[in-house]
Each structure stands twice: as structure tokens, then as C-alpha cells.
């Protein structure tokens, strides 16, 4: 028996993996399927009970206001946060990977990773203190004679906080990709007459693109699925898909509509991941 196991690596792997795999299939995928099925049911207005009859009303409702608006806001902000993080992470990762001394690089790495050890909420609250009316930002601006921006509780605040919170998830894979570019490629580019900007555009960017794609999976999906930060720093029109789902599964008990709404980010992520795969994102994960 042991012999047979030894010779058949796949059999060993299967036996080792099957209990957790079975657990995963049953608990996770089954729940997902149940949720998806629920999306085709409805809620009886009188008894507040689920009506198990198949219909597409919940999905039709997704196309009526305000849901397209909310979905658009969520996706738009997720995209904006992703672009912002790319713009910040590229020079940062470049400096870390190719300019900084090993000592500085370690320091920067720690600086990038350390915030991840702090509670998400603590970091968001820190930003509330910075952004709120009369907060650190307003104070600094008025000291500089620029007038207080007063962007607390707004979509601008949401954009800044999200960009900050998810930035490490962009920097790390971009840094990884940047570090893997052989120095000789950059020298070759310079040798063939390219200045820094062209080398960046024609050599560095295409080669870190998989890293960017990998990082964007994090920044995009984490923003897409968040519903806490919109509550904490958002303004009067900052609801995300997650907030609306939460509102519907709470006391409203409208699980069918919540489930239908939950399909939206799932579909968006499937599309996104397919695109990221084409860019080679999974080689960087």
C-alpha cells in the first residue's frame, strides 16, 4: 500500500487534499450556489418569507435606478483607485527595486508592509482625523494660506482613503516584477539610444505589466467589495454595492435581491480576472 502510494504521486496528493477539498466544495461552493439560486426567488411582502418560484424580477430591478448608478460608482471608484495606486506604485517600486541600497530597500519594504499589520479600521480612522473639517489637512492647507479643502465625508475622501489602504497590495507585485527585470535590458535600451522616458515606456512598463495586473486584482476587487470605508468616510452619495447588499440582508430580510446584487461584483470580477489573465497577472501571484 505504502509502495503504491509512493509511486503514484497524484494518488497521495489526492488523498491528502480531498478532505479540505471536500470541505471547500460543500461549505463554500454550495453556499455560493444556494445564494445564486436565492437570487431567482422573491420575497412575499405580507409574510416576509421567501417565495421559491423562479423569476428574473430581481435581476430586472438591477437595471432600474438607483442601482446602475451605485454599480457605476462602485466600479468607477475601484478603477480610479487602481489607476491611482498604479501611478504611485510604479515610481515607488522602481526606486525600491533599482535605485535604493539594500538597506534603504528593506526600510521601504517595512514601511510598505507595516501598515498591513495595523487594523484596517485604525487606518481608516486615522484618515478621518486627517480629512475631517478642521482636521490635519485643513490645518496644513490654511497654514500654507491655501484655504481649507474640507473634503471630509465625500467621494474624494473615499478615493484618497481607498488608494492609501490598498496601495501596499499594488506596490508588492509591481516591485516583484520590477526587481525581476535584468539590468542588462535597461542598459541595452540605453545602448540602443533610448533615454529614460522611452526605456520606461517601451521596456519597463511592458515588463511590469503582469505585476501591475496582479496588483490591480487586489486594489480593484478589494475596493469593489468594500462597504465599511464608504460608511466611515463617504459622503451623502457614497453608497457601494456592498452597502446596498448589507441593507437588504439586514432587517429587511430581502435575501433574493441581495443575492441578485451580489452576482454583480462576481460577474465583474470574472470579466476582470479574465482580462488580467491575458496580461499575465497570474504569473506574478
Amino acid at each position: 500500500m505504502n509502495n503504491a502510494l509512493w509511486r503514484r504521486a497524484w494518488l497521495r496528493a489526492t488523498l491528502t487534499l480531498s478532505p479540505p477539498l471536500a470541505w471547500f466544495l460543500v461549505v463554500y461552493l454550495a453556499s455560493l450556489v444556494v445564494m445564486l439560486v436565492t437570487a431567482f426567488w422573491t420575497l412575499n411582502d405580507f409574510t416576509n418569507q421567501l417565495v421559491q418560484s423562479w423569476n428574473l424580477q430581481n435581476f430586472r430591478d438591477l437595471f432600474s435606478e438607483p442601482y446602475p448608478h451605485i454599480i457605476g460608482r462602485t466600479v468607477g471608484l475601484a478603477a480610479l483607485v487602481t489607476v491611482t495606486d498604479i501611478v504611485i506604485a510604479l515610481p515607488f517600486a522602481y526606486y525600491m527595486a533599482r535605485v535604493a541600497t539594500p538597506r534603504t530597500r528593506n526600510l521601504l519594504f517595512a514601511a510598505v508592509l507595516l501598515p498591513l499589520w495595523a487594523s484596517y479600521l485604525a487606518r481608516v480612522y486615522a484618515w478621518i482625523v486627517i480629512l475631517q473639517k478642521g482636521g490635519t489637512l485643513d490645518w496644513s492647507f490654511s497654514k500654507l494660506g491655501l484655504g481649507a479643502p474640507d473634503i471630509g465625508y465625500s467621494n474624494t475622501a473615499l478615493w484618497i482613503v481607498f488608494s492609501y489602504i490598498w496601495l501596499p497590495y499594488m506596490i508588492i507585485p509591481v516591485f516583484g516584477a520590477m526587481e525581476r527585470i535584468p539590468n542588462s535590458l535597461l542598459e541595452a535600451s540605453a545602448d540602443l539610444g533610448a533615454r529614460g522616458a522611452r526605456t520606461t515606456w517601451r521596456v519597463i512598463l511592458p515588463l511590469v505589466l503582469p505585476g501591475i495586473a496582479a496588483g490591480s486584482i487586489f486594489t480593484f476587487s478589494l475596493t469593489l467589495g468594500d462597504f465599511i470605508t464608504p460608511v466611515l468616510v463617504g459622503g451623502a452619495r457614497s453608497k457601494f454595492i456592498g452597502n446596498v447588499i448589507y441593507d437588504n440582508i439586514g432587517l429587511a430580510g430581502n435575501l433574493p435581491f441581495a443575492a441578485a446584487l451580489a452576482v454583480v461584483p462576481i460577474v465583474i470580477m470574472i470579466v476582470y480576472l479574465s482580462g488580467a489573465r491575458l496580461l499575465g497577472a497570474f504569473r506574478e501571484l
Binding site: D45, F46, N48, D247, N248, G250, A252, G253, N254, F257
Partner: peptide, 8 residues
């Protein structure tokens, strides 16, 4: 109007 409609 039931509560689920209030939420909506």
C-alpha cells in the same frame, strides 16, 4: 408598504 420596500 412593507419594510423591504422601505429599504429599496
Amino acid at each position: 408598504v412593507p419594510y423591504s420596500k422601505w429599504t429599496t
